[in-house]
Design a protein around this nucleic acid. Structure first.
Lengths: 190, 190
DNA sequence: TCAAAAACTTGAACTACTTCAAGAAATTCA
DNA sequence: TGAATTTCTTGAAGTAGTTCAAGTTTTTGA
């Protein structure tokens, strides 16, 4: 079974066999147990994570002390704190596994040299980032224009399998409403 | 005076003189009058816009018929609908000048061939997109954790000159509250 | 320069959500 | 397996915002 990251990359660019060798020599899968953190607030994030299997989340602890999930990362998604990664500053976020997961962790220095050795890889990341940014623009649109109930139904319609996969209270905070309100939406009590 | 886009690119990567020539032959500045649209909902967005001078915004018309500003683009920012651009699908957004502006419009086909001719340009866009995505992650954090009043003060503290530059009602909708509420915040009546 | 248009303000009534508290159900793992 | 933990539910009370409508101020452009 081929490395799933290489498979993902090939969907966007073509790779020479020698490039694949280089990549494979740098990549290894690490297992992250459910609830384990790969980044905590205040740490500098020097790593990009590609989710091979399982599910990760990015969250914060808000001023009231409650956890708030800002992003999920499932199979074939990259997850990191891009600002901390890019500017080498302490992170605002936690990154945590919400299922037993497998990720490919690429250290910034390793990635920098890979990008120099395989220039075409810049193209891959450019495309992936543009797609992610586009998705984020749509997310802002949904947050701004839909009611809590509409956001829940919209998400549920588009990602029904995913809704089964994560605790409701995490999905509620991702959609920016309270767990209690989620319960009432689901019960039709709104 | 050098093309401000080339100046911007040079902050991230180095360019051969021949690359600069290639670039300059492809780029021209076009003037957009205040209130003029460069993209409307339903159109396919085939162009990326680099703001040389002035200010653009991305907005939608929400289900109640009101305009809602989702993003601003000032000098040295790229603005486009990335999802429409990337997937060649109709846009959800409007792109409009809110000051008399000058932009460099790069057509997708032109950009694609530039990226092939100047591979290093992929790196530039990859970096710019990663920075933008990081900024978007922070924006989600602020939207999720701060009250309307906190968002206003936070924005005002960080971008005081910009606050002077755009109509308050546009800023209010960008910060996700009503123009009337903005008025009350400013008057200290909350 | 001044009429029209755009932007801002105000208060009163309303509402979509939050918070709290407590119990019930489901899941985990020793 | 069953005790502990995590997750979900419910209702009552509260609140951070919206909406509406009308008036005022500022800006624009012929």
């Amino acid at each position: 079974m081929q490395n799933s990251l290489i498979h993902h990359i090939k969907q966007f660019i073509s790779l020479e066999p020698s490039d694949i060798d280089k990549l494979e020599s740098c990549l290894e899968i690490s297992k992250i147990k459910k609830k384990e953190h790969i980044l905590k607030e205040g740490q500098i994030c020097n790593t990009m994570y590609f989710v091979v299997k399982g599910c990760m989340r990015q969250y914060i602890i808000n001023p009231k002390g409650a956890e708030q999930t800002l992003q999920f990362g499932i199979e074939n998604w990259w997850i990191t704190d891009y600002l901390s990664y890019h500017n080498h500053i302490p992170s605002n976020f936690y990154l945590q596994a919400i299922e037993n997961s497998e990720v490919i962790a690429i250290d910034k220095t390793v990635l920098e040299s890979l990008l120099i050795e395989i220039p075409n890889l810049e193209r891959y990341f450019r495309i992936v980032m543009q797609k992610s940014f586009g998705a984020m623009q749509m997310r802002i649109k949904f947050l701004f224009t839909m009611s809590a109930e509409e956001r829940y139904h919209h998400f549920n319609d588009h990602f029904p399998e995913f809704v089964q996969r994560v605790p409701q209270y995490m999905l509620a905070s991702y959609l920016d409403f309270s767990a209690e309100f989620m319960s009432k939406i689901r019960a039709g009590k709104v």
